[in-house]
Design a protein around this nucleic acid. Structure first.
Lengths: 225, 225
DNA sequence: TCTGTTTGGTGACGAAGTCACCGTCGTGCC
DNA sequence: GGCACGACGGTGACTTCGTCACCAAACAGA
């Protein structure tokens, strides 16, 4: 790890001038947290910006109605820009972030973050790009929720979540909050997928055995012309 | 207008130190555009950040399916941060912004924006606050879309859109894209509101004559406990 | 005045969310 | 081992919402 500097894991940051980069590397520190850890939560103020080296973080909105809804997933190579908001204590967001897997990340302390934004145009660009990508991601999420059929969205999500062996380890309830729908809808849709021979199910997991069919479903929905 | 400096219209900016403030006031310029103007659109790159002095801007997502969906509204006193993304040509967003009314705004050119972000912590905070507010707004929008009933959302939107005389000037079709639903649903729901004596309708406008009832509907939906 | 467009209304249907309830599987405890 | 409880998944009935295919009235321009 120490042999290849982590800066190269982040598109944009490798263009930092040497002095800034040294500063970033010396004044930030690498942290590791186990799966399941709350990274941030409503009401908490963060003290550093995280850049994910390894693992994934799931960001969900805690609804007033008690139900959760999935917003986005932070992957290795992404930064957790939402924390900059709470970092600077501007507003309290209603979102919470949880480590889905064991996590390795770079933590940039608040004052270092601020000084880098001030000093480095490249770092500025990095931060703003991250912000606007989040926003445009949310735009397409909204688009999806409003216009896309459930079966298409579920098929797409299954393909995303599948591991190397084409297995998705998630309960129907989890898939439901991922897509902002009800568990029953997931159950019914998965039954239909199974009937079509696209998947096999067992408790807590879905095995994809007919990706082609699901991909076809998605494609036809995307290009109705 | 020139007597009261516009800086005071923006929460946060009045805390700028005198020199920065002078720079901001001299190097930016006031622009006015008529209602209906496209402020930004997919594929276009903006060259300045707008701070709204007067009027409203409606930001919509152009969906691939050809349909539009309302995202948010920029009011006087808000900044149009989304343009910073396209300003720096980071990504092309699929959103478009239209002037709903005649608009007066402060345009901060790209290089001034960049230098202010570098120099002034107060300006930085202003920008980041604006960004994170947009993001949290989108969070609550998603929450609304997923969990809130149409009639509640429509009632709330009507109350927001009503002018001083309690009149909403909008066609059913416009209200439909505002809420990301179909015109038929709006028509039916409005009929129901009319039946309950909450509104009166005529071509292109809705008169609110029973705000109390609508407010009650919203309140019961918000606090089911 | 005639005509094309915009706006709004309706019924039928399908997709999705809600509610109530049940069976099954797994885990841990006695 | 047997039991109890909780997590997980399945199902039917019903409501709400989105879609489709129309139609009628209001309006604007020629």
């Amino acid at each position: 790890m120490s042999t290849t500097p982590w800066v190269h894991n982040f598109k944009g940051l490798d263009r930092l001038p040497a002095d800034i980069r040294t500063q970033l590397e010396t004044k930030s520190h690498i942290i590791e947290v186990p799966a399941g850890t709350q990274i941030f939560a409503p009401g908490q103020t963060a003290d550093s910006l995280w850049l994910l080296l390894d693992g994934t973080v799931k960001v969900q909105q805690k609804s007033e109605t008690g139900r959760d809804i999935f917003l986005y997933r932070v992957h290795a190579g992404d930064s957790c820009v939402l924390t900059t908001a709470s970092m600077l204590a501007f507003e309290d967001h209603a979102a919470e972030g949880t480590a889905e897997t064991d996590i390795k990340a770079v933590a940039i302390p608040r004052d270092l973050f601020d000084s880098l934004v001030a000093k480095s145009p490249v770092f500025r660009e990095f931060v703003f790009t991250a912000y606007s990508r989040r926003i445009t991601d949310l735009f397409t999420l909204i688009d999806d929720i409003v216009f896309q059929r459930m079966d298409v969205r579920l098929a797409a999500r299954l393909l995303e979540l599948a591991d190397g062996a084409n297995i998705v380890r998630a309960t129907h309830a989890v898939l439901a909050t991922e897509l902002g729908t009800a568990r029953e809808v997931i159950s019914r849709t998965l039954s239909e997928f199974q009937r079509r021979g696209w998947i096999e199910q067992s408790r807590g997991e879905v095995r994809l055995v007919g990706r082609a069919g699901m991909e076809r479903l998605i494609k036809t929905a995307a290009a109705p012309a």
